[in-house]
């Protein structure tokens, strides 16, 4: 079943040297699956994630033929109507917990605020729900964490708290923008496993934005590869290593590998034709 259907999405920024197209006509669909979006910095992957929530601020301009969430088109919705979509139906986890948690509020207050904003419940019920959510993301001693401030938390805990906060309104779609790139490898796995379980249990759709090809190949079901604002290739995650586009191959070959030592790493040679070629559709 299709949860989200995006067609011909553009994001533009007017500048002194003419209009800069950051995302150029991207189309894809999302079912109850884990969809990865990979690319280098500046390829438009994060902007695609933000544009789904209509979070492009002026002077940026976004246009799309359609962004429909379970048949409900988001494009004509007003800012006020979008508030009911953001958090409630589509949630987003940002890259760095240091910058996305409020430093002067306790973690408990922040999670309860997120819950009470979307549900008419009392403080007591909100507290119980928040503790339950923190336990769901494997945080031990949740009542103590509720009283703590963000600076008292490690990066991995902070990111799990962010995930708890985003999942508490029970959204249908979770957009995770580089959720683990600020974390150590050993903690990375843990956070991914937690996210994976929650997504499976709740039957959610997940959009996983990352620059780490190996991670995406392991973790996702389907992958969109973006280059210069367009999708250059769509493939199944387990077949990413057999990818055909020279850009994807170049990215994979430029990674150093422990099992295959080499004297020099391959360097990506960019072909101007890649950015000219029309976007591949990621629709099913």
């Amino acid at each position: 079943m299709t949860l989200l259907d995006v067609e011909n999405l553009w994001v533009k920024f007017p500048s002194r040297h003419g209009v800069f197209d950051a995302v150029r006509g991207v189309s894809f669909t999302l079912g109850k699956e884990r969809l990865g979006i990979v690319g280098e910095s500046g390829s438009g992957k994060s902007l695609t994630g933000r544009a789904i929530l209509k979070l492009i601020r002026p002077p940026g301009i976004m246009t799309a033929d359609r962004i429909s969430l379970e048949g409900d088109d988001l494009m004509p919705k007003s800012e006020r109507d979008m508030q009911a979509v953001r958090g409630q139906r589509i949630s987003m986890v940002m890259q760095d917990p240091k910058f996305s948690l409020n430093p002067v509020m306790t973690i408990g207050e922040q999670i309860m605020e997120a819950y009470q904003l979307h549900n008419a419940v009392g403080k007591k019920a909100a507290f119980a729900k928040a503790v339950e959510m923190l336990e769901a993301v494997s945080i031990r001693d949740a009542p103590r964490v509720m009283r703590a401030y963000p600076h008292e938390m490690s990066g991995g805990m902070g990111q799990r708290i962010m995930i708890a906060m985003m999942l508490i309104p029970n959204p249908q779609i979770l957009i995770a923008d580089e959720p683990t790139s600020a974390l150590d490898v050993s903690v990375q796995r843990q956070v991914l496993d937690i996210m994976d379980n929650l997504v499976k249990e709740r039957g959610m759709g997940l959009i996983f934005i990352s620059h780490d090809l190996n991670l995406v190949a392991d973790f996702c079901d389907r992958v969109l590869i973006m280059y210069a604002g367009r999708i250059v290739e769509v493939c199944d995650a387990d077949k990413l290593r057999e990818a055909k586009h020279p850009y994807t191959q170049g990215l994979l070959n430029s990674l150093p590998r422990l099992d295959e030592p080499c004297a020099r790493l391959q360097v990506l040679k960019r072909d101007p034709a890649w950015s000219e070629a029309p976007s591949v559709s990621g629709r099913i």
Binding site: E40, H211, G250, L251, S254, V267
Partner: peptide, 14 residues
Amino acid sequence: LDVSVQAEILNLLA
């Protein structure tokens, strides 16, 4: 840095 740029810098350092 991005992986493609990382490869260039690591080659340069080598």
